[in-house]
């Protein structure tokens, strides 16, 4: 039997991780200056959206065996575009910029896609650069929201994500994408 590659394309993940290195990006935010928070929010949103776009663009070219089988299963059953298509691109994006080896999926049913970040390189970079107080304002969530929303709208899902737990209050972030 043929030996398939079930993992994400390593070159792709490496390229994305260089392009979107959290620390390099965070340094451009100038969060220590007063009144810069709105600007920072806008930059974070742009960062998240761009990460989504590039993940999709590259991910649609680098098709691993999991994606191929998944697409065949979708074709056969007419189901599963949600949650697996958004899940794939969220995983590509997060595995590119985050230290963890796998994204902690909390739910991936036909109705809910939810995941948890027990650690976050973006939050950590803000904390290192601008202090705990700045990090705990959770401006970084703009990046995650923009990432999710861009992926959802790209694949024609009209769903608003929500933040169920945050690094500042709970020591972890948990996002939920729930279909009506």
């Amino acid at each position: 039997m043929e030996k398939y590659n079930f993992g994400l394309d390593e070159e792709m993940v490496k390229a994305l991780s260089e392009e979107f290195a959290p620390l390099n990006f965070v340094k451009t935010l100038k969060l220590s200056q007063p009144h810069s928070i709105e600007d920072a929010r806008a930059s974070l949103e742009e960062y998240g959206r761009e990460l989504a776009r590039r993940s999709i663009e590259k991910g649609e070219k680098k098709i691993d065996r999991v994606y191929r089988v998944m697409k065949k299963a979708m074709e056969k059953t007419g189901e599963m575009k949600f949650p697996f298509i958004p899940q794939r691109y969220l995983e590509i994006a997060y595995l590119s910029i985050q230290p963890f080896r796998r994204l902690r999926i909390v739910a991936n049913s036909s109705r809910i896609l939810s995941y948890r970040l027990n650690e976050c390189s973006l939050y950590k970079a803000i904390e290192e650069q601008y202090g705990k107080k700045a990090a705990n304002k959770m401006v970084c969530k703009s990046a995650c929201f923009a990432l999710i929303e861009e992926i959802l709208s790209h694949f024609d899902f009209d769903i608003k994500p929500s933040l169920e737990a945050s690094m500042a209050d709970d020591g972890k972030c948990q996002f939920k994408i729930e279909r009506k």
Binding site: L95, R102, N108
Partner: peptide
């Protein structure tokens, strides 16, 4: 029922 699709290779 929840599991990720991918993991970084070791």
């Amino acid at each position: 029922y929840a599991r990720p699709l991918y993991k970084k290779v070791e």
